[in-house]
Design a protein around this nucleic acid. Structure first.
Lengths: 215, 215
DNA sequence: ACCCTACCTGTACCTGGGTACGATGCGCCG
DNA sequence: CGGCGCATCGTACCCAGGTACAGGTAGGGT
């Protein structure tokens, strides 16, 4: 981890109470972050890599769960989706869209702080309810041949390369990736060349197959 | 809720390194617990309600995952299963047996502390790899039961086009497909153009994603 | 001090993929 | 019969993707 963690926490919500609670929270205790309000989804595009972002699922401007922008954001941001009425199915959608966390917007202070810390450290966070449900779902199907779903490619790559790889595997163009990451198309190509070499593959289609567990 | 955390953390492992690391960890920083070594599984029965316990999955005496004792322990203890070689399937078994957490025994200090805190606060913890796998399993099942996206593309295409599409989606080159099917590369291109138009996509990467159920 | 890695960029070049604008033959159906 | 979908093929063209060669900076480790 060479990149300095951004001390700022960006919040996209229309709920005053939620915003203020999170902001206060950042000024207390050992956690110390800097809450910034976002008013428009496009602002997410230009946030520095690795930024921590909270998105209120109830916000009217929140992009649909299968909006392609989620992929891009997930590539370079750590996203926590807040829901004032958490439901398991919504949680699955959110996590599927690339969020790193899904929790109750009105969770108690300690929990919220914990979520932030977990996500900031690169892990994922979902609540007890959702997680048990996920486990139940899988253990029922355990009898079937469980696909390996190798995540190995991730470990072979650097942080930046993982970002580029995931976006490319989603079908993003080099230029598109470059714009989202705020770098040159040339650099994207460089990353991809390195990725191809490390994974011993020839092109982005093979990469997509690898990333998505085919082949 | 500010329930007093039990200050003692019980550890059931045969690995000296693991035990000592955890113990040291408890004496540093803001986390402060008291590591106690367990040598026999029966000791788990008599621990006070709510105790935090770490169990090394590699321990020879560790009860089998479907041992009924797990249920009993899970009822009054918070269990974290440590694995020196974490695997998703083992994680599922452990969590299914009632564990509240599953993580790498050699995870870095910050992560281990985080796991302890999360579990101590009544939540569950699993690593990124396992959680993404769980999510994938569920979202795929959702897709199958709700929206039959998997087979839709087939029905939109002719027999020949399906042949070409499946090969292209596997990463085959136009020339390669041509040779296998005994036709010209030009014809392959023609088929692909038709495929792209019918499926309303732009290139073979999008095709691959469609064919393999992503997007 | 030196090396290594991660990350970033420039210029130049080649090629495969995809499109545009054609063509031919075959079977089916109103 | 004429039209239409399907499968096949030709030539020419454009360009995104990928490679080759050549760098620069910053941080961490020896």
């Amino acid at each position: 981890m060479r990149r300095l963690d951004s001390p700022s926490l960006h919040i996209f919500t229309a709920d005053e109470t939620v915003f203020h609670r999170i902001r206060e929270m950042g000024t207390l205790g050992d956690a110390h972050w800097h809450a910034k309000r976002l008013t428009n989804p496009v602002e997410l595009d230009n946030l520095p890599v690795g930024s921590l972002v909270m998105i209120d699922s109830a916000h009217a401007q929140r992009p649909d769960w299968n909006d392609t922008r989620w992929r891009a954001w997930a590539g370079h941001l750590s996203i926590i989706v807040l829901s004032s009425e958490p439901r398991d199915d919504e949680g699955i959608l959110a996590m599927d869209s690339g969020a790193s966390g899904y929790c109750n917007a009105y969770a108690n202070e300690a929990t919220l702080r914990q979520v932030v810390e977990v996500v900031a450290s690169g892990e994922l966070w979902v609540g007890r309810s959702l997680l048990t449900r996920l486990l139940r779902g899988v253990s029922q199907n355990l009898g079937k041949s469980a696909a390996p779903t190798s995540d190995a490619w991730r470990k072979a790559l650097t942080e930046r390369e993982v970002e580029v790889a995931t976006m490319a595997a989603q079908g993003a163009s080099n230029l598109g990736i470059a714009e989202v990451l705020g770098i040159t198309e040339r650099t994207v190509k460089a990353h991809l060349t390195s990725i191809f070499e490390k994974l011993d593959i020839a092109d982005r289609l093979q990469l997509a197959l690898r990333v998505h567990g085919v082949k």
